[in-house]
Design a protein around this nucleic acid. Structure first.
Length: 419
DNA sequence: TCTGGGGTCCTAGGACCC
DNA sequence: TCTGGGGTCCTAGGACCC
């Protein structure tokens, strides 16, 4: 049996931990630059605010219902996520952290009745962190996702759904919309709508060879998982990432190459910090640039370029240098750029770094320099020490409604006032 | 006026190997 | 005239996820 622990409306719940006055009222959290709605309280969903809706479209509706809006505060959400995962890890044997607000766990060898255990997990996480979660328990991960959805949907389940009898599962699947199944995205959803295959049960009744031919091995796995055949093992994702990205949309279009260079240098620096934190060196760096795709009246240009280091590196100086060169290669005069990013890939562990036979080894002085750079910035805060290429003023996003970093900054602790 | 960011895995095809 | 069989590795692009 697999369990899924899914935080309810996670970003909104994080804000409500420190603002209990917002219980029962519409609350939304916005993406970077206060662009789109990325989390909604149940009340905000009920008044018709959509997921991913641009804020300027939702603003009026929210205000009419006396709702509250927050800019995203990932420092806070990341810290509360860590607390939720720590609590969960103390209650079950093995967990796979799937995203900032979800984790799977394995239930083999637990003696406590599983439904009871589910409720105990839910109550403990609520008590220790203030975050409400939904628990789904079922024979496979895909079914556990469905169970967690039901737990969220039906109040009489009190936040935990244990789904294991075959006839119960079939009954659920024959009502469950196929497009809401984990692994069925927009593209396949459309295809199945056209075929009039609307429920998960109808999908399960398709021929395996058809599924294989049309959707590949990933489709077959979903098909099997829905039948209770485990096909997605619990992954140990503690291994390091395959790719590191830092990208942002800008508040305004940027026409100046020098300004973009400073921003890209900052993104490359942030990538370098992440890279060294996971103890890797990288072989490739990509830089991309795009204009505002929502402005059909303006000329469009999107381009990407990449560079391969002859010796894998983790030095911010090398990343900044190549990042800026790539940018200069793809930048075109006269276009208003709205978004840029740096992506690192081709990772190897730093400890077993392969040297090139013909190229000179990377500058050994960088290693010491990066150690000092990271130590200074850990102690005095991000950006205390930086490359000249980044310029004086760090890249700023719109964050008009940001809350305090209650749990990670001494200066921003919650203040309690006596009445 | 305003429209997010960061990931994963799979597949097909090309280069290359013996 | 005729031209094998069995692999690996890499990359780009497409699907998906939260």
């Amino acid at each position: 049996m697999y369990g899924l622990c899914d935080c309810n409306n996670f970003f909104v719940s994080c804000e409500r931990v420190f603002r209990p006055d917002l219980e029962g009222r519409p609350v939304v959290v916005l993406s970077n630059n206060d662009g789109c709605v990325v989390a909604r309280s149940n009340e905000a969903k009920a008044i018709g605010i959509g997921m991913g809706q641009p804020y300027f479209q939702a603003k009026g509706l929210l205000e009419r219902h006396g709702g509250t809006v927050f800019s995203s505060n990932f420092t806070l959400y990341g810290d509360l996520s860590r607390r939720v995962m720590t609590t969960l890890r103390s209650l079950v044997k093995e967990i796979e952290i799937y995203s900032i607000d979800e984790a799977f766990f394995n239930l083999e060898g637990h003696e406590e009745p599983l439904e009871e255990l589910g409720h105990r997990i839910r109550n403990t996480i609520r008590r220790h962190t203030g975050i409400p979660v939904s628990i789904g328990i079922a024979p496979t991960k895909t079914l556990a996702k469905i169970a967690a959805k039901l737990a969220k949907q039906y109040p009489k389940l009190s936040g935990c759904c244990y789904m294991h009898r075959e006839e119960d599962i079939r009954k659920v699947l024959s009502k469950f919309p196929l497009r809401d199944v984990w692994g069925i995205g927009r593209r396949y959803g459309k295809l199945f709508d056209q075929m009039q295959i609307l429920t998960a049960q109808q999908f399960v009744e398709l021929d395996k060879r058809w599924v294989q031919g049309r959707m590949g091995i990933t489709g077959v796995r979903t098909w099997q998982e829905l039948q209770g055949i485990p096909s997605l093992p619990l992954d140990d994702l503690s291994a390091s990432r395959q790719q590191i990205t830092v990208s942002r949309s800008f508040p305004h279009e940027i026409y100046d190459c020098g300004e973009l260079e400073r921003i890209v240098a900052e993104f490359a620096t942030m990538c370098g910090e992440k890279l060294r934190r996971q103890g890797s060196v990288c072989r490739t760096i990509h830089c991309f640039l795009m204009t505002n795709r929502h402005r059909a009246d303006q000329p469009q240009h999107t381009e990407e370029a990449h560079y391969r280091f002859s010796t894998p590196i983790d030095s911010t100086l090398a990343l900044v240098k190549e990042g800026r060169e790539l940018l200069r290669a793809i930048f075109r005069e006269g276009f208003g750029y709205k978004k840029a990013g740096i992506i690192l890939g081709g990772f190897e562990p730093r400890s077993t770094q392969q040297q090139s036979l013909f190229e000179p080894p990377s500058d050994p002085r960088h290693e010491r320099l990066m150690e000092v750079l990271d130590r200074v910035n850990r102690h005095y805060g991000h950006g205390a020490l930086k490359t000249a290429a980044e310029g004086e003023h760090p890249f700023q996003m719109n964050r008009e409604h940001v809350s305090q970093r209650y749990t990670t900054e001494w200066g921003e602790l919650l203040t309690v006032k006596a009445k």
